[in-house]
């Protein structure tokens, strides 16, 4: 029924050999290059010893607080004293105020810029390459029909209203390849291949405590809050009724 609209358009095989396949190959290889460039540029961030110590102390206090009911009452009081005792408590230590904001830390800036470069620059380069050399002619045909709405998007630079919309130019192929290649990259490069994934993994390995202790977080305030929380815990040991629970369940 669409036969009248769909005129058979045959493209020169040179377009396939010198445009379509090179674009796919180039973008594929560029993606792999980006993957390895990201790995090469990645720096293992050095942790500040004092900061890490504070973060671990905080995490420990939180663990004690959330699991308080699993230890006997005396044990809990001992731990609370360790953290909260005036003067000597670990959480009462004076922490020099963190005046450095996150932007002032040069390491952070460099890392951010590297990540941005690794993701944005390749896209700009490829997009420029594709649109500079291969715009203005049809390079492919989608095997599915599109409505006329898409004409301005997929046939940019071709002012032919009679041409079937499923014939597309290099710009729309670029986006299809860009999104479609992700699946292939996950097959070829393995897990966590994109730059942001790698970042995420790094953060996971460092642990939430270390991530929390990033610059710009005022540990003094956090310590104070944790001290209050610990003070407010109503301790009720679950071990007290352990024997009765056991005996009841075995009956």
């Amino acid at each position: 029924m669409e036969a009248q609209n769909t005129q058979l358009l045959v493209l020169d095989s040179s377009i396939r050999n010198w445009v379509l396949l090179p674009i796919v190959l180039f973008m594929f290889l560029f993606g792999i290059l980006r993957h390895y460039a990201t790995i090469a540029l990645r720096t293992t961030r050095k942790n500040d010893k004092a900061k890490l110590e504070q973060a671990q102390t905080l995490a420990r206090a939180q663990t004690v607080r959330t699991n308080a009911n699993w230890i006997p009452h005396e044990a809990f009081l001992e731990r609370k004293a360790f953290f909260n005792q005036p003067e000597t408590g670990v959480l009462n230590k004076k922490i020099p105020a963190n005046t450095l904001a996150s932007m002032a830390d040069p390491n952070n800036m460099v890392d951010m810029m590297k990540t941005n470069f690794a993701t944005i620059v390749p896209n700009i380069v490829m997009w420029g390459w594709v649109s500079y050399f291969f715009s203005g002619f049809v390079i492919a045909k989608f095997p599915f029909p599109l409505t006329g709405r898409f004409r301005g998007m997929v046939q940019r630079g071709i002012e032919l209203n009679s041409l079937d919309v499923s014939y597309v130019t290099s710009a729309s192929m670029y986006f299809l390849i860009l999104f479609g290649l992700r699946g292939l990259f996950s097959l070829v490069l393995g897990e966590a291949n994109a730059a942001d994934d790698a970042q995420l993994m790094q953060q996971q390995m460092m642990g939430p405590a270390a991530a929390m202790a990033g610059p710009g977080v005022d540990m003094g305030k956090l310590f104070e809050a944790e001290r209050d929380n610990l003070e407010l815990v109503t301790h009720e040991s679950k071990l007290k009724e352990a024997e009765t629970t056991l005996l009841n369940s075995s009956q």
């Binding site: 492919a140 045909k141 299809l176 479609g180 699946g183």
Partner: peptide
């Protein structure tokens, strides 16, 4: 997305 890409390429 991957399917549409490979399908289009092979078909073309």
């Amino acid at each position: 997305m991957t399917y549409v890409l490979v399908w289009t390429l092979a078909y073309d």
